[in-house]
Amino acid sequence: MFKSTANRLEMPGKSKLGFFAKVKKYRTLLCMCLPSTLFFLFFSYLPLPGIWVAFVKYNYQKGIFGSKFVGLQNFEFMMQSGKLWTLTRNTILYNLAFIILGNLFAVFMAILLNEISSKLFKKVSQTMMFLPYFISHVLIGVLVFNFLNYDTGFVNTVLSNLGLERWQPYADPYCWPAILIFIYLWQQSGYNSVVYFAAIMGIDGEIIEASRVDGANAFQKIRYIILPSLRPTIVILLLFALGGIVKGNFGLFYNIVGTNSLLYETTDIIETFVYRASVTDFNFSTASAVGFYQSLIGFVIVMTVNFIVKKIEPDYSLF
């Protein structure tokens, strides 16, 4: 949507105006994108040469480019761990679930919010949904432990008072994907739905008016007007999210699962493994090597998905 507008603005300039004339003409637009440009320049592009640290034996005194070059040695420990596949699989599957379910849920909530007619109720429910977003992962970890622990946890106290058998989630790796996804949705959906809610607000009122005149009911309105209007937003947000699909949510996993090795099979992600393996020796080089590996996979995934999107619907692709 944004892109096509920009194209239209640019088209006439391309043939007639020179570089500086264009700068002058679009100075307001340029000013508006200056902060984000600077942000990415300083925090994403300028540090790029620092990737080199992943290929050296880093020495504090000699600096990144003065340290000894060791080739791919810093990548070896990930390969040798024999866990690379499990870790990458866990990371990607969790993120897929977070992205897909998270977005679906957020769209669903935004539509529900939009349908609420009482203004007070709408504001109250939106705030309630938003609140979990502000609770830190550390606190959530404590809450979850107090809910689920075997000896004194809330759930088990209720179960045993009802005469039922106690449940021991901290020794059962298979219930954690569901628990973690539930926590993620509980925490993030309110926040994520804001973008979609804003997009719904931006839909031209006349279209909705017209549909009502044509006799569309609420479900038809959602099916034929709101959902199609949200499609570009959904696709763009999905594409953005996919770039980070190999980067795990360290705070969530580390604070809730901790270092309980009974659960690693289904809960260990790249970040938590690297943290455990590196916390004792503080090695910039291995950490950067892992980061580089994640970025590389993320890059390949974004390019592939973007390519596919471009084939199907060129307007929705990122570039």
């Binding site: 034996k57 420990f77 270092t259 090795s261 455990r276």
Partner: peptide, 19 residues
Amino acid sequence: DSIEGKIKNCNEVFGDYMK
């Protein structure tokens, strides 16, 4: 230098099982 990765992995594996 040459065995750093292996040491890290052994330590990690041992820690996992010792828990």
